[in-house]
Design a protein around this nucleic acid. Structure first.
Lengths: 145, 145
DNA sequence: TATTGTTATACTCTATAACTATA
DNA sequence: TATAGTTATAGAGTATAACAATA
């Protein structure tokens, strides 16, 4: 078992570098990290109110207003009225938006696969074994329940 | 052993979510991801020419000129002349800059440790076992040899 | 002439504050 | 009054193109 403090430091140093690496795997298609994350959220978890999206992505409401406007302009999402409450805007991903999510994930998968070929077998096995745990760690932070 | 294609997809989906999670661990101290990455690079690998930094961080030379100007303005790095070639600018991290790197890493470590406590023992063990492999994966992308 | 870095200009993305519409 | 969202305005960060200095 891990002693929380000392291994927190080790983990932080390791994840620091891993984060930098993953950042470089990001497709250079002009979508900001927040935009891509918002699209993935809409794809995975369905419709959200605009204020919910802002809170979930950690940006202000005006920032999310503009982000959604850009998504709408590019045909990747749409605003839907909420009959029960005229103040509310519900944001929904379009089929074109889902396609963008798929394309980005495929591109990242391709780059990862190319990288993984250069790792020794034992490293690949260790990462494969840790995938469920890493996924659980991801769930703890992304609130996609 | 992993079959490259299929497991590239699995890894990409897992790392997609892990990346989102790690992004949320980032200290909100006003430093952009590129700025923080540049500081870490200077801390880990020593002095760099401005053009080297731009290439390593994947930004243009004018962008790095401005980034370094901001670091200099904030006392986190300094420009040094290169006697052997008057065109060259060498960028060096200051002690204040190193302190920022340490503080950010400590903050991330603290948040990670708090998260890890919520993972079951077997997940923690799997992540610990995979740390060297994840580090190797990071090395493949960040060119910090 | 080629290389290194900076300046000029424009665009994206974000924040805070003020505003509109609905409840 | 309170809430959901938008508009107004300002600042950070980036890119491309043009420029200055050195080799």
């Amino acid at each position: 078992m891990l002693a929380a403090r000392a291994d927190g430091d080790r983990l932080a140093a390791g994840f620091d570098r891993l984060f930098e690496a993953l950042r470089r795997l990001n497709p250079a298609d002009g979508l900001s990290l927040t935009t891509a994350s918002t699209l993935r959220r809409l794809d995975r978890c369905g419709d959200h109110r605009l204020s919910e999206l802002a809170a979930a992505e950690g940006v202000t409401q005006p920032a999310m207003t503009q982000l959604v406007s850009r998504l709408e302009r590019d045909g990747l999402a749409e605003r839907c009225p909420e009959p029960a409450d005229g103040r509310v805007v519900v944001v929904r991903i379009t089929e074109a938006g889902r396609e963008v999510v798929r394309r980005r994930r495929a591109e990242r998968a391709e780059r990862l696969a190319a990288l993984i070929e250069h790792l020794p077998d034992r490293d690949r096995a260790a990462i494969e074994a840790a995938l469920p745990a890493l996924d659980h760690l991801g769930e703890l932070l992304t609130d996609e329940s």
